[in-house]
Each structure stands twice: as structure tokens, then as C-alpha cells.
Amino acid sequence: MSLVLVARDDAVATVTLNRPEAMNALSRALRGELAGAMRELAADESIRAIVLTGAGERAFTAGLDLKELGADTSNLGAANATDADENPVKAIELCPQPVIGAINGVAITGGFEVALACDILIASTNARFADTHARVGVMPGWGLSQKLSRLIGIGRAKELSLTGNFLGAEAARDWGLVNRVVAPEALLPAAQALARDIATADPAMVRGYKRLIDDGYALAFAEGLALEQERSTAANRGVRAEEVESRRLAVIERGREHAG
């Protein structure tokens, strides 16, 4: 049985973590399959957006397989690898296409970090988030200690990380961690619809814009503005007036369709 399922529908790929009997826990084998699947999709120019979810309704992923770690902590070294071969978070982050996390159940510790590697998060009402690193006694190595505070504020991040308490879907939305909360049966359709919306935009523009947002977010604000100016000047130099006009008309037509 494959631990990671990949389904392609035109320009959208849906990746499913497939260990529902183990709450989609990130065994070494699953981590390797997930990293491999994301690398393969990253290289596929026909795929314009990716949805990442978990099998079942109980868990997106419960994080690193603690039973496996309990038997052999040498797995921690591989889990923290900085390249995309062993580290699924790095593989997700390196995808040039936007990745939408459809959080169908619990996202715990390493699973929380996998969720935070996604560009956009949509949660079902079953979703819950928890950082139990402090309780398990393992320091995060996939970015949670730095990403979470930047997303929800340092005080809230410390509350979650130092208690190990769970954060429900609605609170996660209120804190700005997820974009929206939907019923479980609506989760995958909503995520895939959003992916299809993204897929209708120019793929080179989407990839370049995603990279600009991510690269700028890692900088101080003034440096980010300078980066935008630099890339904008380089990219917009080649834009032709007739292209702008045709795209302007397409935007107007799309707006009318959405209004209807």
C-alpha cells in the first residue's frame, strides 16, 4: 500500500497522506514518500497548484511516528535533514506551485510543521493544532519555533508551544492561522476549487509572485520592499501593452462571472 497517494486532475494535484490507521503519523518511510512526491510535482510544469491532505477525518498527520522514534532515535537525524530528500517540509517549501493544506483533523507537532509549510490553509471543523515538542522532549527542526510566532504573534505562539495545548479550528481561524473553516465533507472540494482558481492564472506569474512573497517575508520590511522594487523593475520591463489590455478584459469578464 502506498503511504502517499497522488491524484492529478488537469492542472491540480491532490496529495494524500495515507496511514489513517496510524493517524497518518510521519514514519521514515512516509516522510521519504512525501518528499519524493512533492519533488516530482515540483518538477511537473503541467501542475499549477497542489492540495495536501490526510486520509480519513481524524488526522491530517499526528507528526513524527513516536513508536518508531521510541525504538530508534537515529531517525531524528534523518528527519531534520536540510535537503528535500528526507525532509518533507523542505520539499513542500521548495515547490514553485502554491500548496494548499486541507487540514482534515489533528495536525500535531511535526504535523503542525508540515501544515505550516503550505502556502494556504483551509481547515475542517475537525481540525485541531498542537505543538507538543516541549512535552515529548524533542526540539523542533522544521521551522515551527520561528514560523508560528510570525503568523499568530509571539505571545500566542508561546502559549501553544510551551503548554502543548490544542487549538481548535475556529480559534485557528480567529488567530489568522487558517484562512477559513468548512464542514468535513466540504473541505476537499473547497481546497480543490481554490487550487483551480490559482491554476487559471498565468503559471509563470504565480510562481514568480509566490517566490517574491516568500523571499520578502524572510527579510526585514525595508529589505522586502527593496526586493520587490528590484524584481518588479526586471519583470515589468518585458510586459507589452497588448498583453495588459487582453488580461484586463479577462479580469473584467471574470469579475462579472463571479458577481453573477
Rank of each mutant, 00 (worst) to 15 (best):
A123Y: 13
A127Q: 04
G105Y: 09
A78C: 00
I120D: 05
T82G: 05
L160V: 15
I154L: 05
S145I: 05
P88T: 09
T109A: 14
A123H: 05
A115T: 10
C95P: 04
G70T: 01
A117E: 09
L121G: 04
V138H: 02
I108R: 12
T82M: 08
I103G: 03
N87P: 06
G155R: 11
S124V: 09
V89M: 01
I108D: 06
Q146T: 12
G101W: 03
I92T: 08
W142P: 00
C95G: 06
K158C: 02
R150Q: 14
N75D: 00
A71S: 10
L162H: 09
D131R: 02
N75F: 03
R156E: 15
G105C: 11
N75I: 00
K67L: 09
T82P: 00
P96A: 10
S145V: 09
N126M: 06
A107E: 12
S149A: 15
R135S: 13
D72V: 01
T82H: 04
A91C: 06
I103H: 06
E93Q: 14
K147N: 04
A123F: 15
I92P: 02
A107I: 14
G105I: 08
C95I: 08
R128G: 14
A130E: 09
K90V: 15
P98W: 05
N104K: 11
E86V: 00
P98V: 06
A157F: 08
P98M: 07
D72M: 02
G153P: 01
G70I: 00
A102K: 11
E159W: 14
N87F: 02
R128L: 11
A91N: 08
A71T: 04
T82D: 07
P140M: 06
A157N: 10
E159M: 12
M139N: 00
C95F: 09
I120H: 12
E68L: 07
L148R: 10
K90Y: 00
T109V: 12
S149K: 15
N87Y: 04
L151G: 00
I152D: 13
A84E: 14
V138R: 03
D83E: 11
L116H: 05
L144M: 12
S124D: 06
P96R: 10
E93M: 11
D83C: 03
R150N: 11
I154F: 05
L162C: 01
L151T: 12
L94E: 15
V106W: 07
R128H: 14
V106C: 11
A130N: 10
P96N: 13
G101E: 07
V99N: 08
I120Y: 14
K67Y: 02
G77V: 04
T109H: 03
N126C: 11
I103K: 05
T125C: 01
L151H: 05
G155V: 11
F112V: 01
R150K: 15
I120T: 09
D72H: 02
S149P: 15
C118G: 09
L76V: 00
N126R: 13
V89K: 01
A134S: 13
E113R: 04
I108M: 12
L148I: 13
I120P: 01
K147I: 13
A134L: 05
A79H: 07
G110C: 07
L121F: 06
R150E: 12
A78N: 01
P88H: 06
L94V: 01
L148E: 06
K147G: 02
V106D: 11
A157R: 10
S124R: 04
R128S: 15
R135Y: 02
A130I: 07
I108T: 13
A91G: 05
